[in-house]
Design a protein around this nucleic acid. Sequence first.
DNA 1: CGAATTCGTCAAGTGGCTTTACGAAACAAC
DNA 2: GTTGTTTCGTAAAGCCACTTGACGAATTCG
Lengths: 119, 119
Amino acid sequence: MLERLHEHGFDDLDAAHLLVFQYPGPHDTRPSELAARLRISKQALGYLLGQLEQLGYLERRPDPNDQRGKRILVARRGKRAIRVIREAVAEVETEWTQRLGAKRFTQLRQLLLDLNEQA
Amino acid sequence: MLERLHEHGFDDLDAAHLLVFQYPGPHDTRPSELAARLRISKQALGYLLGQLEQLGYLERRPDPNDQRGKRILVARRGKRAIRVIREAVAEVETEWTQRLGAKRFTQLRQLLLDLNEQA
DNA sequence: CGAATTCGTCAAGTGGCTTTACGAAACAAC
DNA sequence: GTTGTTTCGTAAAGCCACTTGACGAATTCG
């Protein structure tokens, strides 16, 4: 992912930032909630969000419903980056399909989905 | 793995140490070679090996064939830890077998092996 | 209302890593 | 055999993604 991102001009991202973009992404979530989901401290997330905001990938706006909190909005640059990430994933899936064959790849995918579902 | 290790008295290990024990383990390999395999710098590996040696998990002995080099030997405590790790893996496999059924688990396992083989 | 929880942030510290630099041993060329 | 190059491990310094502790402000609860 990082390689593809750098190739597409998002070379100001590094490995730590990928955590924030991890599915389903940070859009419209509160920093506290996201930190809990990613299992890092609120401070650590704040540090990463500060960088990503500075680089134009997202914004932090006051939460209209709670004057203590904020909400994360993915900006245009962030959405473009997410698209590149999706393309990278699709690329891997294509390669695996070639290696295993379409039928067995589908099997693998379904097994992993089942495994994850009950977790 | 870390949880099981701590439960079994190996509570002086942390997540970074697991890298060193990663299959097929560091036994009888040179630090340079192991660092390359793990994709970290020789210095970083030296740092971890120093800790593990201090804690009694392994030893560094001069390589008889090359007076520049050393060889890593897994000590008794290290072998015991590796056994616990293997048990933890077996535990996961058992759980997955229960979730998926024996036949589908075997399928999953084979698909992953095939995928890895051609990598 | 008052007390307790939750929000994000400031500050300080930590540790697993990196890069740079090095001396010693092995290897290659001739 | 000597000389230049590569490879061995290590020493030193710096980096940065995290942690814990503490805090004021807003919210929620009894």
